[in-house]
Design a protein around this nucleic acid. Structure first.
Length: 504
RNA sequence: GCCGCAUUCGUCUAGAGGCCCAGGACACCGCCCUCUCAAGGCGGAGAUCACCGGUUCGAAUCCGGUAUGCGGUACCA
């Protein structure tokens, strides 16, 4: 049952690639809205022209879309144009609205033009700091007469617009943190709502837009609690009704500070490029600061939506734990349908071809045949190249040290490989199948008094160059008879100068 | 400095006065399975619930204080 009164939003600023924290905030808004059948919208806060870019904008839209965090209103992620009754959803296209709102404030003397120069402001700040006072605007322009203003304009000064902060205590019942009260004397004095060039600032645009877009619940990061009183003041002054607020706990670096790209990988696109899948990422993000209260760990998005309850959101921050993310990602990769997995693997294989880690792109059917032995071994999609890349390379590099099994010496390894080569070559090429290949090699090991594991390991390294691979005989089948024999031959040749093994 | 917020195993968390001398998961260790690596199964170690005081027959859960940590303090968002 849809609830048209519930309207929430994510309002990213295109000043960087989609950040894990933004994705998490978007996810919680999405979960809140979907759980009750409300509306989730996306608005681009692009008023910081100096730092913003269209490339970041695309990255954010595509990233959220990729994660499955889809919006009901906002910029169209697949083309031009905005969707929804309150379009446009880009602030740079809503400048008239902010202008109109600030004119109203100016007319009512709820805001005023401020002619202070950056130098004056800096000096004020320095003085306050020296006197151990909290920094705040001193109000130099708060009570200027018309003549005084005219004089400043005549000097060529362009004013910013400052909002008058009224004395009092601002309080609200935060949906996650309970009642919060902040005295407006701690807000730093009258604050700027529009730059000298007329472009509006964040505090002002959020309020104007949240009101215009009928936002019922503002769900955002904890770092915004201090901004909330300013916003409430603005809602009040503009005559708008005040939405509910919910401040989410922060995602933290391992050292407990707010997650930052200096200390933690924060770009969603980077996780995507490493082969994390949306199911794993979303599941992980949802459990950062929230839990269903059950012992379920692996939960699909629709189940998370069904269980989501903002009352269960924590107050304390959560450290980002990549190991847990990897585990969850592996859980989700194992749950993918074969065709789906193949589709998702393909770009990673192609990337490996492009940068030369493998020599050709495996056909889908070959990858499909491999799935039973690789799917449960993939913590990420990208891991496929390390796990099975030897199948798609012309030459493998073998470290002679790892070619020799731990309990063997070089001579024994050469003899073992030679004997194995013979057994494999003698094998009927038509029945080159895993369960057919294993018995002869086991018999060989037994006849020679070798541990089967040692023989297998020598062959494994000879044909793959690695000590950790999918099961050996499946690997030999995937490789095919010719390449198997050729690689064993090459390994034997590499051991050619080893002394003869003493007969046991 | 000032304002605000937070605090349960290393990490993510369960826990809303007795079910908790605290449960699950990741990571770690061991065993099983086993040709390696995974996956899976079983088991182990790991939290005097930040500390102090109070309320109560009874507190991780309620109250007060302390400590520590974090966030904010822009003509950024």
């Amino acid at each position: 049952m849809p609830d048209p009164t519930i309207r929430v939003r994510i309002a990213p600023s295109p000043t960087g690639p989609l950040h894990i924290g933004t994705a998490r905030t978007a996810l919680f808004n999405f979960l809140f809205a979907r759980h009750v059948g409300g509306t989730f919208l996306l608005r681009l806060e692009d008023t910081d022209a100096a730092r913003g870019s269209e490339a970041f904008e695309r990255d954010i839209l595509e990233g959220l879309h990729w994660l499955g965090i889809t919006w009901d209103e906002g910029p169209n992620p697949t083309g031009d144009g905005d969707i929804g009754p309150y379009a446009p959803y880009r602030q740079m296209q809503r400048l008239d609205l902010y202008r109109e709102a600030s004119d109203r404030l100016l007319a009512a003397d709820l805001a005023y033009p401020c002619y202070c120069t950056p130098e004056e402001l800096a000096a004020d700040r320095a003085a306050q700091e020296a006197a151990k006072q909290p920094p705040r605007y001193v109000g130099r322009c708060a009570a200027l007469t018309a003549e005084e203003r005219a004089a400043r304009v005549a000097e060529g000064r362009r004013p910013v617009t400052r909002f008058r902060v009224r004395p009092g205590v601002i309080a609200w019942n935060d949906l996650v943190r309970g009642r919060i009260e902040i005295d407006t004397t701690n807000l730093g004095g009258d604050f700027v709502i529009a730059r000298a060039d007329g472009t509006p600032l964040y505090h002002f645009t959020v309020v104007v837009d949240d009101a215009a877009m009928k936002i019922s619940h503002v769900i955002r990061g904890e770092d915004h609690v201090g901004n909330t009183p300013k916003h409430i003041l603005l809602f009040e002054a503009l005559g708008y009704s005040i939405p509910q607020f919910a401040h989410l706990p922060l995602i933290l670096n391992p050292d407990g500070t707010k997650m930052s790209k200096r200390k933690t990988q924060t770009a969603v696109a980077d996780y995507q490029a490493e082969g994390f899948i949306r199911e794993g990422l979303v599941n992980y993000l949802a459990y950062l600061g929230w839990s269903p209260g059950t012992e379920e760990d692996v939960l699909p998005l629709d189940e998370i939506v069904a269980r989501f309850d903002i009352d269960k959101v924590h107050k304390g921050g959560a450290k980002f734990d990549r190991e847990r993310l990897e585990w969850l990602n592996g859980q989700w990769i194992r749950r993918l349908e074969p065709d789906d997995l193949i589709d998702r693997l393909r770009p990673f294989l192609q990337a490996a071809v492009d940068d030369g880690r493998i020599d050709w792109l495996a056909p889908d059917d070959e990858v499909r045949a491999l799935l039973p032995i690789v799917q449960e071994r993939l913590p990420t999609l990208a891991a496929i190249v390390d796990l099975a890349g030897f199948l798609w390379t012309n030459e493998i590099r073998i470290d002679p040290v790892v070619l020799v099994p731990k309990r063997w010496d070089a001579a024994t390894t050469r003899d073992g490989l030679t004997a194995a080569r013979e057994a494999l070559a003698a094998h009927d090429p038509v029945s080159w199948e895993a369960d057919e290949l294993e018995p002869p090699l086991r018999a060989l090991a037994e006849a020679r008094g070798w541990k089967a594991g040692d023989l297998f390991m020598a062959v494994r390294v000879a044909v793959t160059g690695r000590t950790a691979t999918p099961p050996l005989f499946d690997t030999l089948v995937a490789l095919g008879r010719d390449r198997t024999l050729a690689r064993v031959d090459a390994a034997i040749a590499a051991l050619a100068d080893a002394p003869r093994a003493q007969p046991a």
